[in-house]
Structures are given as C-alpha cells and as structure tokens.
Amino acid sequence: MKENLRFGVIGGGSWGTAIVKMLSENLDQLSWYMRSDSAIRHLQKENHNPNYLSSVEFNVSKLHLSNDMNSVVAESDVLVFAIPSAFLEAELQQLSTSLKDKIIFSAIKGIVPESGLIVGEHFHDEYQIPFENIGVLTGPCHAEEVALERLSYLTIACADASKAELVANTLQSHYIRTKISDDIIGTEYAAMLKNIYAIAAGIAHGLGYGDNFQSVLMSNAIREMKRFIDKVYKMKRNINNSAYLGDLLVTGYSVFSRNRMFGNMIGKGYTVKSAMMEMNMVAEGYYATKSAHLINQNRIKKTKTPIINAVYQILYENKNPKKVFRKLTEKLN
C-alpha cells in the first residue's frame, strides 16, 4: 500500500459533512463530491454546508469540491461513500472513471435496493472490488455530535487490517476515538438493522409506551439482531460491542436519530409519505425494513424477527400501529 494516500468523500448530507470534518482534522487536502452545485458555491463563499451541519466551518483551501463524481474518484485513492443506500446505484451510474484499485469504505447504513445487498457486497459483486479493498465505517456516532465536537467513537472494519488502521488513524482526533474490526459483514448488517429498531422505538414512543417498554424493546432488538447477523454470516463476534449494541442504543434513543423521529411520527398517526415529506431527510430504516424482510424470507429462511416483522407490517402493509404493537408486546420478554 503506497504512502500518502489521497482521500475523497462521496456525499453532501449530514454524515458526509461530518466525515469531511473529521478527515479535515488530519489531512491537508481532501476531495468532496456534492451533487448540489449551489451548495458547493455557498460552501466556497461562506465556509459551511448550507443544508447540513451548518455550524461546521471548513477551511475550503483544503477541499477540492466538485459535483462531478468522476473528478473526485480520479483524484482519490481512498473513497468514503456517504450517499443514502436507496440512491447509491443511481449516483454510481454517472461513473465512467474506474473504481478498480480504489479502496472503498462505506459509511452507508442500508441495503442497495437494486441488488438487495449491503453496500460492501454490492461493490464486490457489481463492481468487482476485492473484499480486502472494501471497508465499513460505523458508529455509535451521530453527525450532529461530531459537529459539536462531543466525544464520539467509531468502528472501522476491513478484511485488511492495515487499511482499517489507515482510515482509523486518519479519522481520530481529540473528540474521535477509533477501533478496528475484521467483521466487515456483521458491522454493516448491524448498521442497517439498528435503523429498523430505531423506527420501532420511535413508533413505541409515538404510541405512548414509556421507558420501561423501551428497555425491553431494545433488549429484544439486540438479540434479534444477533440471530439475523449470525444467519447471514456466522463468525465469532461480541454483539455487546459498541459497533452493534452501542450503535443500536444511540440510534434508538437519541434526539438526533432521524429513524426514531420517523417512527415517532408514524406512531402519532402520520402516513409514511407525510412523515417523509415533513422530515425532508432520508430515514434509511424505511428502505432497510423492506430489504431485511426480503432477506429473511428468501436468504436466511425465516429467522425469528418479530420486531422487524412488526415494522414491516406498519410501513408496507399499512397495518394499524397500535394493533401491531399490542401483538408485539406479547412476543417480547
């Protein structure tokens, strides 16, 4: 692996903005793809992203900003993708520059709908990127707390430990602690599943369930997550580590969690469409719910997943949240 690798970030949302902030602490130059030309112009003039984490001020002399993904890919050795999974493949379709020999890290917490795969598997199967060149960047970590420089922890997973170490060292700072993992599949599935459970926590709150029930819901959720991940890819892992349980808890309980917010609105009686319109942000768990349901039906042969099933019934079968959760409470322990 050559020295002085060049980094590029793909995505101009809140998490992409937070990742650029973290990388900027340690890099003199960084490429950043944002789809919005007006956001780029604003950032160049005012030193902050007008749409996400606007309190973060950037030294724009460090940044190569572009709405041409090919330019950013061509100039980067390590690419961190932070585009919502539902839109990833559409964005990748504009690529004419090869991803071959690039190191790809996914900061995306979801399933690519076109392939039904987590992002790492999608890059491997659809773009022939070897697994040793694919990694995952996961929490527990909210973009909003990164913006405030509150102490946060990241897990960086890659089959090649040296690449995981490289990215971990480039991200860490006085407010970011990092650790590495070799569980690339498990950490990425955990990052996808925790958004579904956060929607469940939000629905429960919207319906008026209290902290006592929330604790039981989260306790059952981590066990359900373990069953699901073990079926997909069995290896020795401690599900209580921060990349699994920690990320689940912060997403399920935090006021910054858009998935919990989305679920809360559903519990209060919003339709899926009206909740999405009011939030004006992507709740990854909505798409993840359908993907997890299909994986459970087709790939892992009906693992016991009562929480995922309940969220699916509410979001995709238009079933009454109050009635669905009443039945769910009888299945939890």
Rank of each mutant, 00 (worst) to 15 (best):
I295A: 05
Y286N: 02
M265D: 02
G263W: 05
A157N: 03
I156M: 10
V73Q: 05
E126Y: 09
S71P: 00
H124Y: 10
Y233A: 14
H205N: 13
L27D: 06
N59Y: 02
L27G: 11
F213V: 02
F262Q: 09
L30N: 08
Q93E: 14
N309G: 09
I19F: 02
S173D: 12
M225A: 06
V78P: 13
P321E: 07
G11H: 09
N70R: 01
I295G: 06
G208P: 12
G186V: 03
L95F: 10
L328G: 11
R326L: 13
G12M: 08
H174T: 13
K331F: 10
G206Y: 06
D247L: 08
T329I: 13
M69N: 06
K327H: 13
F131K: 13
N4D: 15
V119M: 06
S76W: 08
V136L: 03
D247T: 04
T97P: 00
M276L: 15
E89L: 01
S14Y: 10
M69F: 04
Y52G: 01
K304M: 09
H48P: 00
L193I: 10
S254A: 12
V78Q: 08
S85I: 02
E25K: 08
M281A: 14
N133K: 09
S38K: 15
Y244D: 07
N47Q: 10
S96R: 05
S55C: 02
G246I: 04
V216Q: 12
K319I: 06
T170S: 15
K323H: 11
P321M: 11
R258A: 10
S66R: 11
G208R: 12
D160I: 03
L63C: 05
L207P: 15
I40T: 07
M281C: 00
S162Y: 07
I295C: 05
V9L: 10
Y316Q: 09
E114R: 03
T251D: 12
K301Y: 12
R237Q: 03
K268S: 14
E75A: 13
I203P: 15
L95P: 00
A82T: 07
I129V: 08
L5W: 06
E3C: 03
S76N: 07
R6Q: 15
N49K: 04
N240F: 14
D183P: 01
M279N: 07
N47M: 05
M192L: 14
G269P: 03
D101M: 01
F58H: 07
S98D: 11
N240H: 10
S98G: 04
N238I: 01
V216E: 09
M69S: 08
G263K: 06
K179S: 14
L217V: 04
F123L: 06
L151K: 08
I203T: 14
N296V: 01
N26L: 05
